[in-house]
């Protein structure tokens, strides 16, 4: 009885509000944790960028690139243990929240949601990609992931020089933007020391500028291209947190697709897969909140349902559970 009551309360929750507060606290934690000496280590699966001196953790890509750039004999020798520990820590963090790291914890993701909120306040409508554009653009993140992994390896075998160090960080807009959280604007510059650095940092600064314009127009603009999202996807099956779908209950009405910031079509059209998490997904759970069928979409921890779509919850969230009457009798 009590259990049902709690379950109902969770299923009826105003997800957007709950999410806003979680994101805000996570943002404070990861962008300003440094002020109170919080440090979650350097294997965090989000863009908690260490270029921001007050960060409460370090994005895993930073140490990963440094480790992979070590000469092969070191990488597979003395350093192997620390590389492995870093990776395992990363996986351990990831396994807890799955891609919800993106939708709830990533400060860079949250920043985009706030830009979206600003656009909404100004009464401007969002942009979308056509299906064809979507399919092309959504592959870019794998190219970035390749940059994260391959360039350091090439440095390790001596093909590329020192100036390629942390190549992805140099082009990453989070490197330019995150320090601004603590008032540091110094990353908005181009490094002229070598041609490579010049090109990479120019891309970084341009990317940061495009980031602001892009995420003003398109919801979660950057997440389409995020290599962290790609890396997440490769190990999402390991995670305890699952986004599942019961295709039998789905009427393909498309309500979930309609609210999806990432325009993932499978969420509505795929009635076969039970695991409905896709590579672009950021696990914001808006689809679950917008699904009007009981239990068609649900979030599970292992096999326990923690948040399910429900008719009642849907009506509450859409303002369809009551009516302010203005008579036409």
């Amino acid at each position: 009885m009590m259990k049902n009551k709690i379950r109902r309360m969770i299923n009826n929750m105003p997800l957007n509000k709950v999410r806003f507060w979680i994101q805000l606290s996570m943002f404070v934690l990861f962008a300003y944790g440094g002020y109170v000496l919080i440090d979650f280590g350097s294997s965090i699966p989000i863009f908690a960028c260490p270029y921001n001196s007050e960060t409460g953790a370090t994005c895993y890509f930073m140490p990963l690139q440094h480790q992979l750039a070590m000469p092969a004999n070191v990488l597979f020798g003395a350093a192997a243990i620390s590389v492995l520990v870093g990776l395992l820590t990363f996986v351990a963090w990831f396994v807890v929240l799955n891609k919800a790291w993106c939708g709830y914890a990533c400060p860079f993701g949250t920043l985009q949601d706030w830009i979206t909120a600003l656009r909404k306040k100004l009464g401007i409508r969002y942009g979308t990609y056509s299906q064809a554009q979507f399919e092309k653009l959504s592959k870019i993140k794998y190219i970035f992931l390749a940059i994260v992994i391959v360039i350091p390896l090439l440095m390790g075998v001596g093909v590329l020089g020192r100036e390629w160090s942390g190549a992805f960080c140099q082009i990453c807009p989070a490197r330019v933007i995150s320090p601004m959280f603590s008032g540091d604007f110094s990353q908005w510059k181009i490094d002229f020391s070598t041609v490579t650095s010049m090109i990479l940092t120019t891309i970084g600064v341009l990317f940061a500028a495009v980031f602001f314009v892009g995420s003003f127009i398109k919801k979660r603009f950057f997440c389409f291209f995020c290599p962290m999202s790609a890396l997440h996807y490769t190990m999402s099956d390991l995670s305890l947190l699952k986004l599942r779908k019961d295709g039998d209950k789905c009427t393909k009405c498309g309500d979930c697709y309609k609210v999806c910031d990432m325009q993932i079509k499978d969420i509505a059209d795929d009635v076969i897969s039970t695991n409905i998490l896709r590579d672009d997904c950021m696990f914001c759970m808006k689809c679950v909140a917008a699904c009007p069928e009981d239990d068609a979409l649900h979030v599970d921890i292992l096999n326990m349902r923690v948040f399910s779509s429900s008719k009642e919850g849907f009506a509450k969230r859409m303002g369809m559970d009551r009516l302010e009457k203005n008579d036409d009798r």
Binding site: R125, C253, D255, K258, P292, M320
Partner: peptide
């Protein structure tokens, strides 16, 4: 089937 709206524009 119901209408779901993300941003009420």
């Amino acid at each position: 089937d119901r209408v779901s709206v993300d941003e009420w524009f």
